[in-house]
Design a protein around this nucleic acid. Structure first.
Length: 635
RNA sequence: GCCGUCGUGGCUUAGUGGUAUAGCGGCUGAUUCGUAAUCAGCAGGCCGGGGGUUCAAGUCCCCCCGACGGCUCCA
């Protein structure tokens, strides 16, 4: 059943003409009017025929719930077929409508508009936030026929209670400086903190005047990293070999870093039962929209993080206080969030994305706060090594007033660690499952902010999922849970690197990737065919991702192409190199536009230099042909 | 999801009612070349999809899809 509830000053109707399915009615029924009424427009659907009684009960419950909220004493039951494209038989519909009328009539002043008639009506909607609501009601266990798996959007289920709650949440915005002072965000002197200013504007005033597409969209395609996939849903990207390589390197890096602090890597399912009682409640506390899937008789949703899987695993584990803090991580490929259409842009915001999701079980609040501090530092370090410096992101710290009162010094320390002012958002009451969180927000070339790393202290889910550990007295306790995404979404890291490079270009610098992430680390350019032998020797002497531009092109063309690909080291080989045994290397990181930095060195020196720049960072071999002449173009 | 703009060969793009432009890329040939585009030729398009108006539609109208911008929203 589709329900549309409108709280109205009045509703009135008058029948005009009967349709073939019209119910027979008396003269007095042909027009009606109710003042101060909750009008329930409804369409009974084919699904409802499976269990009409249950649909009646649930519809009545929904109507009553809203009637109580808006303090309505009158209810207009109004059949409205246009709410659905899959209607029930008229017979069932009339009986459902009559039952609803009957159920409500004891408690409310109820009127029902006749079924199956064209009616003129006028309604005056009150327009307050609760005055217009829609609901979808389906009998439990309703099976759809046709295909085995049908992906469908259910409007009512994608708006979680947390999303609704947020619209009413009262936020207090402050700027916290490293000296521990809380300043009003309005009127703060942002001199020297341009990006913080942009971030604060983005968060608070929501003032955005941008007329251009973010530059990374063109770059991600030109550099053959990622692209839109028209054959999928929006926000589901394809990644070409270079993009997959970069993702893979960052993924491995984050996993390595979390292994170093003792996180256990696990893998959990991508889809879950919508009607699982624990999950249902969690869905309502998480501010995100889901993809949903009909699979046989079950209604599934795609995960938007690894929380479910890990919490369900934690629930079944036997855990002692000796095991705490206990860390688990999953690199989710993918997490799915059905973001609104207009929010999707390039790699900044996706509907399917790769996110490292780590959870830490801590014995108590004190333990969780200390872990929070450690993970805060770890996140700074992680982004830094990926190539996103403290100066590239802005910190937001969000907490409840209670938490702040008890932990002022700790919060100040967070600002001190980054040694710059940070944005603070404080709530009087806790709307979400956490009492404290931070995010590192990247501010891009179009002054838009998006979150990378985040850690949250969760005080709800251990209980909800019934996760327990045994304390030193042998008593069962619920741990405090930390959520941590050390790097942010991997795609978003690439977005940040591309945007950062675009800003460098804008500032008159040569754009770069960190060497460990560059798909090609060294390009060897032989001038003529006779230099291929030595070119191969040089390439063989290098223990990194090296390729050879053996195409029949001029040197100028090959240099230009290497530059457009942001290759960090370009070694040109001609007669004099063959003779000297050295190579002539253009070092991109030390070059300026139109002023390439060229150094003559041996292949061994070049190799050492590249290896030292890769350092401890992950390495994978080149996923493309070594010879450029053997490479297809992806676009 | 709502409002607006846009959608032409693999890519970028000209074309506002009358036989569909060009560059890049690809292929063929010539060139074997010293640091940001060597020259010539060839192939490749039912102009996002569907419907309508018209003698005639890439061009005008309607619906849908997608991208971008805004609103909204955001881990």
């Amino acid at each position: 059943m589709q329900l549309l509830l409108i709280h109205s000053d009045y509703i009135e109707y008058e029948v005009k003409k009967s349709t073939p399915v019209a119910e027979k009615i008396e003269e007095s029924f042909k027009q009606g009017r109710l003042e101060e009424a909750l009008t329930a427009f409804m369409a009974v659907e084919s699904f409802d025929e499976a269990d009409p009684q249950q649909v009646v009960e649930r519809a009545v419950a929904e109507i009553e719930k809203v009637a109580v909220q808006v303090k309505a004493e009158s209810v207009m039951v109004y059949p409205y077929a246009h709410l659905s494209s899959d209607l029930s038989s008229p017979k069932v519909a009339v009986s459902v409508l009559k039952s609803i009328e009957k159920e409500l009539s004891g408690k409310y002043n109820v009127m029902r508009a006749p079924f199956g008639w064209y009616k003129a009506f006028s309604i005056s909607c009150k327009g307050h936030p609760l005055s217009e609501l829609s609901r979808t009601i389906r009998p439990e266990e309703s099976a759809t026929c046709g295909e085995a798996v049908v992906v469908e959007e259910k409007k009512d289920e994608v708006v979680s209670e947390a999303l609704k709650a947020e619209s009413t949440a009262k936020s207090y915005w402050r700027i916290l400086t490293p000296d521990g002072e809380l300043h009003e965000a309005e009127g703060f002197d942002f001199t020297g903190y341009d990006n913080l200013k942009k971030f604060v504007d983005y968060e608070i005033t929501k003032n955005r005047n941008i007329d251009k597409a973010p530059p990374h969209v063109e770059l991600m395609r030109r550099l053959e990293i990622a692209d839109y996939e028209p054959g999928s849903d929006s926000g589901n990207m394809r990644f070409y070999p270079k993009g997959r390589l970069m993702k893979s390197l960052i993924e491995n890096f984050v996993l390595d870093e979390s292994a170093k602090i003792g996180a256990m890597e696990v893998e959990t399912p991508l889809m879950y039962d919508m009607n699982h009682p624990t999950l249902k409640k969690y869905l309502d506390r998480f501010p995100a929209r889901q993809y949903s899937i009909e699979s046989d008789k079950r209604h599934m949703f795609l995960r938007f993080a690894a929380c479910f899987g890990q919490f369900l695993m934690n629930h079944d584990m036997t855990i002692s206080y000796r095991h705490l803090p206990l860390k688990m991580i999953e690199l989710t490929r993918y997490s799915f969030r059905k973001e609104q259409r207009g929010e999707l842009v390039g790699l900044r915001r996706l509907r399917a994305f790769t996110m490292p999701d780590m959870h830490t079980l801590c014995p108590d609040m004190e333990g969780s706060v200390s872990q929070f501090g450690e993970q805060y530092s770890m996140c700074i370090d992680t982004l830094n090594k990926i190539g996103i410096d403290v100066s590239d992101f802005e910190v937001a710290i969000r907490f409840t007033r209670d938490f702040y009162e008890g932990n002022k010094d700790f919060i100040t320390d967070l600002a001190r660690k980054v040694d710059k002012p940070v944005l603070v958002e404080m709530w009087d009451t806790r709307f979400f499952y956490f009492v404290l969180k931070f995010e590192f927000n990247f501010v891009d070339a179009t002054a838009k902010a998006s979150a990378l790393s985040t850690v949250q202290i969760d005080v709800e889910n251990a209980e909800r999922y019934d996760i327990n550990y045994t304390d030193s007295n042998g008593e069962m306790q619920h741990p405090v849970v930390l959520h941590c995404c050390p790097s942010g979404a991997i795609e978003r890291c690439i977005y940040a690197l591309l945007e950062k490079a675009a800003m460098d270009t804008e500032a008159g610098k040569v754009p770069n990737f960190p060497v460990w992430l560059s798909p090609t680390q060294v390009r060897v350019i032989p001038i003529a065919e006779r230099h291929m032998g030595f070119a191969n020797e040089v390439a063989d002497a290098l223990q990194c991702r090296v390729d050879i531009d053996d195409r029949e092109e001029t040197v100028g063309k090959k240099i230009r192409d290497a530059g457009r690909e942001w290759v960090p080291y370009v070694a040109v080989i001609g007669d004099s190199e063959v003779e000297s045994g050295n190579v002539n290397v253009t070092i991109r990181a030390e070059s300026e536009p139109k002023k390439p930095k060229k150094v003559e060195m041996t292949a061994e020196e070049l190799n050492e230099r590249v290896l030292s720049e890769i350092g401890d960072m992950p390495y994978r071999s080149l996923p493309l042909a070594k010879l450029l002449s053997m490479r297809p173009k992806f676009l």
